[in-house]
Simulated assay, not measured.
Amino acid sequence: MNFKLPKNERLHSKKLIKELFDKGSSFFLYPFKVMVLDAPAGFDETHQVLFSVSKRKIRKAVDRNLIKRRMKEAYRLHKSEILAPELPKKLIGLIYVSSELATFPIIEKKITKILKVLAENSNSTNSDT
């Protein structure tokens, strides 16, 4: 059980972020917009995730950072039970779109749902091939 969130699990490559936004598919689960893309060929790392909070929606940097910390913590706690290492690697973008500050239990519940949806989608594409 690895509950860490090291740098290699965070999406920080500008090239991969651009590819995620250009080619990735998305779905909406309020208060998140989720962008997903299968990792490119030759990508042997873990799933990578991007956390984003709009400056237009949440004006104060302190509040934006609070939301990002809550998102990272919820992802960190639930990633191991949902995203199995044998699944194809994915690039995931979690974009917070609400203009209100959500509490940690709400964010945790939504991120858990998002990870379940991603795992189900991965399992269905694996069984098709």
Rank of each mutant, 00 (worst) to 15 (best):
F21K: 13
F21W: 11
D22K: 15
D22S: 14
K23N: 15
K23W: 07
G24H: 07
G24C: 05
S25C: 08
S26N: 14
F27P: 09
F27Y: 10
F27K: 07
L29H: 11
L29S: 13
Y30H: 15
Y30L: 08
Y30I: 08
P31F: 04
P31W: 03
F32N: 06
F32D: 05
K33M: 06
K33I: 08
K33E: 11
V34L: 00
V34Q: 00
V34K: 01
V34A: 00
M35Y: 13
M35R: 13
V36F: 00
V36W: 01
L37I: 03
D38P: 11
D38T: 12
D38Q: 14
A39W: 02
A39S: 12
P40T: 00
P40V: 00
A41Y: 11
A41M: 12
A41R: 14
G42V: 04
G42W: 05
F43I: 06
F43E: 05
D44S: 14
T46W: 09
T46A: 13
T46C: 08
T46D: 15
T46M: 09
Q48D: 09
Q48A: 09
Q48M: 11
Q48W: 07
V49W: 04
V49S: 08
V49H: 07
L50C: 06
F51P: 07
F51I: 06
S52W: 04
S52T: 14
S52I: 10
V53C: 14
V53M: 09
V53P: 04
K55P: 02
K55M: 03
K55G: 15
R56F: 05
K57A: 12
K57P: 00
K57W: 01
K57E: 10
I58K: 03
R59M: 06
R59W: 05
R59N: 12
K60S: 10
K60F: 11
A61F: 02
V62G: 02
D63W: 08
D63P: 03
D63L: 14
R64H: 06
N65W: 08
N65R: 12
L66I: 09
L66G: 06
I67R: 06
I67N: 05
K68S: 10
R69C: 08
R69E: 09
R69F: 07
M71R: 08
K72R: 15
K72Q: 13
E73I: 05
E73K: 11
E73P: 04
E73Q: 13
E73N: 10
A74L: 03
A74E: 04
A74Y: 04
Y75F: 15
Y75H: 01
Y75G: 01
R76H: 00
L77R: 12
L77C: 04
L77M: 10
L77P: 01
H78K: 14
H78Q: 15
K79C: 02
K79L: 01
K79V: 03
K79T: 07
S80M: 11
S80L: 09
S80K: 14
S80P: 02
E81A: 10
E81D: 12
I82T: 13
L83M: 15
L83N: 08
L83T: 07
A84Y: 10
A84G: 05
A84T: 11
A84Q: 15
A84L: 15
P85K: 12
E86F: 08
E86D: 14
L87M: 14
L87V: 03
L87D: 11
P88N: 13
P88F: 05
P88K: 14
K90V: 01
L91W: 04
L91F: 05
L91Y: 04
